[in-house]
Design a protein around this nucleic acid. Structure first.
Length: 203
DNA sequence: ATCTAGATGTCCT
DNA sequence: GGACATCTAGATG
């Protein structure tokens, strides 16, 4: 039997104003939930942010926890820039640096609902399934073409463009994924009911 | 549906 | 050498 209600396909929601660098100059725990429902575009390709995780310098699960290294250097810089790192030797993952210079805190972008440039994303991913295009941190960077070349790039200048959300979404929280330290902290934020999450959240 | 192995950069002991 | 903010393909219930 068909479901009683089929979730609407990811429709290009009305875009809010571009987020300035200053948007990120606050606690990761304020910024992370506010990013749910915002639209991330790289060279015009991307979608609605439906899942993020917050990481802070004082957090054992954060890359910056052990101090500055060549890899995490951007995390220790000013807010409003992209921190890109290689995960498991294979994938790229993208974070937005938050708070203040030296705070070394960032929000990991984990999943998008694809809205812009579906054809480009399918080509980058070598997949057709819309649901699999951006439903994970490594998937979305591949779909959008984000690589180490974007490490340290400002988030308010092309090719990056992040549009403020225009509606207040229902947000659910839970433990972060794929970490072994501080696993109890509920610093994963998701859009309630979204079918583009990397893994289900309550609600 | 859950499980496993394998891909391998960067940091750690 | 081992762990890790992951993903895929293939095997198995």
């Amino acid at each position: 039997m068909a479901r009683s209600r089929v979730p609407a396909a990811a429709s290009p929601a009305k875009l809010g104003p571009l987020l300035s660098r200053r948007f990120f100059a606050r606690s990761v725990h304020e910024v992370a939930p506010e990013l749910i429902g915002a639209t991330l575009l790289v060279a015009g390709v991307g979608g609605l942010i439906v899942e993020v995780e917050a990481y802070h310098h004082t957090d054992p699960a954060a890359h910056s926890y052990g101090g500055e290294t060549p890899r995490n250097r951007v995390m220790f810089g000013p807010p409003g820039f992209a921190y890109v790192y290689r995960s498991y030797g294979i994938h790229w993952c993208v974070n937005f640096v938050c708070e203040a210079e030296g705070s070394a805190s960032a929000v990991l972008i984990r999943a998008l609902a694809p809205t812009h440039g579906l054809g480009v994303m399918r080509k980058h991913r070598g997949l057709d399934d819309e649901r699999s295009l951006c439903s994970g941190p490594g998937k979305l960077t591949q779909a959008l073409g984000i690589t180490i070349a974007h490490n340290g790039a400002p988030l308010d200048i092309e090719p990056f463009a992040i549009h403020r959300r225009t509606v207040e979404p229902d947000i659910v929280t839970g433990p972060r994924i794929g970490i072994s330290k501080a696993i109890e902290l509920p610093w994963r934020y998701g859009l309630k009911g979204s079918r583009f999450l990397s893994k289900a959240l309550p609600g």
